[in-house]
Design a binder for these strands. Structure first.
Length: 555
RNA sequence: GCACCUUUAGCUCAACUGGAUAGAGCGUUGGUCUACGGAACCAAAGGCUAGGGAUUCGAAUUCCUUAAGGUGCACCA
């Protein structure tokens, strides 16, 4: 039931829509409110008088149990018993589908995220795109969309020539087999440190060999690529991340010529300083470079080809790019170019921009070793989780596995809790904190609820009618907003809304839990409170799972 | 220089998109353990929402402006 709609329909006033219905600052005042200031002009009366009049003519019913007029606001209290039974019935019957929907039925959403570079290990700078994209993937799926997760591999460019050159110079198969991606990365770093003009030339040659199909160069490249994918997959598995496509930059090299031809045909391509560009001056942007003066393609060229390929292949309803805000201009430019090409679907491309990660002593830099590897962060978090579990609950079975769930949860949640546009300074103190607004708090609440349920023998039934107390009612109201929260998160591309929702629900449940006895309550009260506990348990699990975080039954 | 982003409690962040007394966590101080899990709960202190203007019944939120910080701006991705 949409209460805002209901209220608006019942009031039947001109120019008032559901969007005008607001929420009072606290629930003693009411559950919904209509500010009457807008009506003052049309009615030629003071808002206070209007509210008073509307109050007097309003007839309460099954749904709205009370109206009051305060300072120009018309406040509504809804029938608690009605809300209670409809919300709990819904949560309990839908279970792990609670919050899902079919609004996306028949629509496809592409999500490009994570997009690792071949031969480069994961550092914490890659965490945001990976978990934000991963969460959006799950959120859209939950809403019934067909979702295509795309890892747009960074697998094209002169750096691979450098890599091969470095490998042939200093590397060997054994070392790389043993050291994996970090060994490859070291070779690359060493090359950048020691390279002179001669070596740079050699690297360019190797890159050309890759492009021209040279067997040895390609074998090496493919080997590096495989090592990279194997390596990142171990991390994706921990983070509960999946992809449907690993089509990276190389995938599009044979798909760029038609795009260039089309640009030419449409008269969009211009020569400037030897390069081929699309002039974007009329739109207040620098030109978009499509071909270098030596004829080589650029980032934008491949992105144009990729967008067109995706439209043709998936016929997406939306295509999201989860990429840091440094590339704002790039996306604005290439979206505009597609629009100029007459692609009416250019409006369906969305750059989901997020903030940067830096370290306490400044920006990260692979070259001088100022990096924090994601594996290290994960390991430390899991270790800490294990230590805490061992201390608090050492008799627990599966301690290792639970520590994984808790530790990884903390890593993921830390990257998803704040508005994605905010820059963050990485600190171990922050990720390793398990108190307060954290995934651990949510998981703890979940385990606590589960413990009560287990002790109850799970034999309870929701009473038909129940008048909730204040704490119970707060929990119910919070439960009722979960489906809308998920829709908001999808619409705003903001998984943090779900993370915050989970913490809010956990807080409200904990308040209830402290104030109200559950197992020792009597009759209907006990049945109701157990039902409520079950509903919270399942909703918290759903919320966490949309973020890629597990919820141990015990911890 | 130009464009975009950010600025809210000591710190990290919210504020349902223009509504009532700006809320959480961390930290600080003081409480709650005869408990269904204390990884919890309660309370206190802490704010001219960076400064200034404008719009209107009403602004943290919209517009202008100043300041501080960040990012980007031609052959890297």
């Amino acid at each position: 039931m949409d209460y805002r709609e209901y209220i608006v329909n019942k009031l039947n006033l001109e120019n008032i829509t559901a969007a005008d219905v607001a929420l009072p600052p606290n629930s003693q005042m009411g559950d919904y409110a209509l500010p009457c200031f807008k009506l003052a002009k049309a009615f030629r009366k003071s808002p206070v008088a209007i509210a008073e009049e509307l109050k007097n003519s309003f007839v309460c019913d099954e749904v709205i149990s009370e109206v009051s007029a305060v300072n120009g606001y018309l406040n509504f209290k809804i029938n608690k018993m009605g809300l209670v039974s409809s919300v709990l019935n819904r949560v309990l019957s839908e279970g792990d589908c609670y919050g899902s929907s079919d609004v996306g039925k028949g629509k496809t959403v592409c999500v490009e995220y994570s997009s690792v570079n071949v031969a480069k290990p994961f550092h914490i700078g890659h965490l945001s795109t990976t978990v934000i994209g991963g969460a959006l993937y799950k959120i859209y799926k939950f809403l019934g969309y067909n979702v295509v997760g795309i890892n747009h591999l960074g697998d094209y460019g002169t750096q691979f020539g450098k890599l091969i050159s470095a490998y042939k110079r200093w590397g060997n198969r054994e070392e790389v087999d043993k050291g994996g991606i970090h060994a490859i990365n070291e070779l690359y770093v060493r090359f950048n440190k020691e390279a002179d003009e001669l070596m740079e030339q050699e690297a360019r040659n190797y890159f050309r060999l890759i492009e021209s199909g040279d067997r040895e160069a390609n074998e090496l490249f493919e080997w590096f690529k495989e090592l990279t994918i194997d390596y990142v997959n171990t991390i994706y598995e921990k983070l509960n991340i999946t992809f449907d496509s690993y089509a990276g930059e190389r995938f599009y090299i044979d798909k760029m010529q038609p795009v260039i031809d089309e640009l030419k045909e449409k008269g969009l391509l211009k020569e400037s300083e030897g390069a081929q560009i699309v002039d974007l001056e009329p739109y207040g942007m620098p030109p978009c470079l499509v071909l270098r003066s030596d004829g080589a393609s650029l980032y934008a060229t491949r992105d144009l080809a990729a967008a067109i390929y995706r439209k043709n292949t998936y016929n997406f309803y939306k295509c999201l790019y989860v990429v840091a805000y440094q590339q704002n201009l790039h996306f604005k430019q290439f979206f505009k170019v597609l629009e100029l090409m007459g692609k009416d679907w250019a409006k369906d491309l969305v750059h989901v921009a997020y903030g940067m990660v830096s370290l306490e002593d400044g920006a990260m830099s692979t070259r001088n070793g100022r990096v924090v590897w994601l594996e290290d962060v994960i390991n430390k978090c899991v270790e800490k989780a294990y230590a805490v579990i061992d201390e608090k609950n050492s008799a627990l079975e599966n301690k290792r596995q639970i520590a994984e769930t808790v530790g990884l949860g903390a890593v993921i949640f830390g990257a998803l809790y704040n508005n994605k546009i905010k820059d963050v300074t990485f600190s171990y103190d922050k990720v390793l904190s398990f108190d307060g607004e954290t995934s651990v708090y949510v998981q703890y609440t979940c385990a606590r609820a589960n413990s009560v349920l287990e002790k109850s023998g799970k034999s309870f039934a929701l009473p038909e009618k129940y008048e909730p107390n204040a704490q119970e009612y707060e929990v119910i109201k919070q439960l009722s907003t979960f489906p809308q929260t998920i829709k908001d998160a999808a619409e705003k591309y903001e998984p943090s809304l779900i993370a915050r929702y989970a913490v809010d629900l956990a807080q409200k449940y904990n308040k209830f839990y402290i104030d109200c006895k559950i197992l020792s309550a009597e009759g209907e009260t006990k049945h109701f409170r157990l039902s409520l506990t079950e509903a919270v348990h399942v909703t918290l699990k759903n919320a966490l799972s949309l973020l890629g975080i597990g919820a141990p039954e015990k911890m």
